[in-house]
Simulated assay, not measured.
Amino acid sequence: MTITLSPPPPRIRAELVVLDERFRKIAGDEYVECLYDGGRWLEGPAYAPAWRCLIFSDIPSDRLLRWDEVSGHVSVFRQPSGYVNGNTLDREGRLISCSQGDRQVVRTEYDGSRTVLASHLDGRRLNSPNDVVVKSDGSVWFTDPPYGITSNYEGHAAEQEIDGCHVYRVGPDGALTVVADDFTRPNGLAFSLDESQLYVVDTPAKHIRRFDVDGDKLLGGAVFAPCEAGMFDGVRLDSAGRVWAATHEGVHCFDPDGTLIGKLLLPDVVSNLCFGGPKGNRLFITATTSVWSWLLTTTGAPRW
């Protein structure tokens, strides 16, 4: 089903804050484009190269949407979706989603059926999986705050069965383990280019932490960067290891040394982002009710 809406707002001039000359070199177009403006709270953008499309979530509307790169049309990919939040692709191009409403991490198979990858820890239901990444060995790593069970707005109001909000790993053998248990509300996460480190947002704490990855364990966890504009949400890396983070005022870009080098300011609170497009240099941004696009001179982190 194609969604028919009035044309989105025209492109707007990119409002940049250059804090370091390193940022000026990677900023591309002078404009950002609005691809869609009809959501309630948009999240979880994931670019699918084989489909030439962007999959993203409209959580309160309980649906996954699909923006077609060729036609520019937006259609419903799945409804109901299980109040899906974060999405990513695995090495085989299958969609991995955090289903807040079902309190599961699920994989969409090639035939459209869904396989549950994680739902319980020691017999207790997960809180509400939020964001997810896949490592090159096939393991799936995700965060599990309670946002989907605190009310009926983004899921189903329910009691929290697990003591705490953790970061989890699903091994290639399907085993679910806790890899970090000292978070208030873990949220966005992303691996470094060589997968030796994992960046994890703790939203209420207003910072990003960086862990060392030791096989199926996480070590350390020092603060990588604090948020100076509300709170962090989703994070992604580019091909130079820079960290791009969603904030309340737009997108912040950090050098691998932790320096905030620049910002892209947007009119709405930004929830998440991802790189995509044929060359991987298009930054897709979900911001409250809208999806924005910004063409850069850098590319997203390579996929294995």
Rank of each mutant, 00 (worst) to 15 (best):
residue 143 T to Y: 06
residue 135 K to H: 15
residue 126 L to Q: 02
residue 143 T to E: 11
residue 140 V to T: 15
residue 135 K to Y: 11
residue 126 L to R: 01
residue 137 D to Y: 11
residue 140 V to R: 15
residue 125 R to S: 12
residue 126 L to V: 02
residue 130 N to L: 08
residue 130 N to Q: 12
residue 137 D to T: 03
residue 132 V to K: 14
residue 122 D to G: 02
residue 131 D to I: 00
residue 126 L to H: 01
residue 117 L to M: 15
residue 116 V to N: 04
residue 125 R to I: 02
residue 131 D to F: 07
residue 139 S to V: 05
residue 115 T to I: 14
residue 123 G to Q: 00
residue 116 V to E: 08
residue 144 D to E: 09
residue 119 S to W: 12
residue 123 G to D: 00
residue 115 T to V: 14
residue 141 W to T: 04
residue 118 A to I: 11
residue 121 L to P: 03
residue 133 V to M: 06
residue 132 V to N: 13
residue 126 L to W: 02
residue 134 V to E: 11
residue 114 R to W: 11
residue 113 S to W: 10
residue 122 D to M: 09
residue 113 S to E: 14
residue 135 K to C: 06
residue 118 A to E: 03
residue 128 S to C: 06
residue 139 S to Q: 12
residue 125 R to Y: 09
residue 144 D to C: 11
residue 144 D to Y: 07
residue 127 N to Y: 05
residue 144 D to H: 13
residue 123 G to C: 01
residue 115 T to H: 13
residue 139 S to P: 08
residue 125 R to V: 01
residue 140 V to G: 09
residue 126 L to I: 02
residue 116 V to Y: 13
residue 120 H to A: 00
residue 126 L to A: 01
residue 134 V to W: 07
residue 119 S to K: 15
residue 131 D to A: 08
residue 137 D to N: 15
residue 136 S to I: 04
residue 117 L to N: 00
residue 115 T to M: 07
residue 134 V to D: 10
residue 132 V to C: 07
residue 144 D to M: 11
residue 126 L to Y: 05
residue 124 R to V: 02
residue 128 S to L: 08
residue 133 V to G: 04
residue 142 F to N: 02
residue 122 D to C: 06
residue 136 S to W: 05
residue 119 S to L: 09
residue 116 V to D: 05
residue 127 N to Q: 12
residue 116 V to T: 13
residue 128 S to M: 13
residue 136 S to H: 14
residue 138 G to I: 04
residue 115 T to S: 14
residue 140 V to D: 07
residue 129 P to M: 08
residue 123 G to Y: 00
residue 144 D to F: 13
residue 116 V to R: 03
residue 113 S to V: 07
residue 120 H to I: 00
residue 133 V to S: 11
residue 128 S to W: 10
residue 130 N to M: 05
residue 142 F to D: 04
residue 141 W to V: 03
residue 129 P to R: 07
residue 118 A to M: 04
residue 144 D to Q: 10
residue 130 N to C: 03
residue 116 V to F: 11
residue 134 V to H: 09
residue 126 L to K: 03
residue 115 T to L: 10
residue 114 R to Y: 10
residue 131 D to V: 02
residue 130 N to H: 03
residue 121 L to H: 12
residue 138 G to Y: 11
